[in-house]
Design a protein around this nucleic acid. Sequence first.
DNA 1: ATGTCGCTCATGGAGCGA
Length: 257
Amino acid sequence: MLKIATYNINGINARLPVLLQWLQEAKPDIVCLQELKAPGERFPLAEIQAAGYQAVWHGQKSWNGVAILSRSLPIQEVGRSLPGDKDDVQSRYLEAVVGQIVIVCLYCPNGNPYPGEKFEYKLKWYKRLTAHAKKLLAHDVPVILIGDYNVMPTTLDVYKPEKYVNDALFRTEVRAAFDGLLKQGWTDAIRHLYPEETIYTFWDYFRRAWERNAGLRIDHFLISPHLRDRLSRGGVDKHVRGWEKTSDHAPVWIELK
DNA sequence: ATGTCGCTCATGGAGCGA
């Protein structure tokens, strides 16, 4: 059994006690982290290693930043930029072979406010991701695209869909881009396991969103066709969102046979 | 518009992104 998790930690140094506590109790084999909000040299490698994990990371000062952790399987980094725009300097992509699986850690652009430059950047980023995802599928090896997609795929994934019609996380253009990935053959693992349930992975810090369960499902695992039959369980470690000094996201995980 | 966080700059908060 292989347990793979994703967690937008919103600042790895501010979040380190929470991250270590969760690693200790959840014991995932592989973890994708987003929003490190730290340059490469400020990644807390010693503490991560002391917790029993190897790591590769792609940091950036102030914003973004992604990492892949592994407990026992070796990690071999194979890429740290999403192909298609060599002028894009934002650290939102990290690709590695972990054991026998290609693990892609993603932090898709937020895109707000809509309309605007940031929204256009998000759409372009999704175009690049779609092109690259197609190539990954063509390699015909097990791949998982993991991370914060900054999109709620359906109305089931938003506490109040009507409030989000002009939000960059729910605009039809972005949902269509996500749908395009599914049409390529990727499977939204959590939705596959729970076709009907309301599941959230993010609760805003604002307006007592956590207390009101005003949540969004924006952290996803897209698994390649090879892995669909190996998918056994999945869930959200929702209680972590209730901890002190916690992220606005909760960790999400799946298990593969 | 607002709310709350985390980060940076080079302050003793302000501005930005989410």
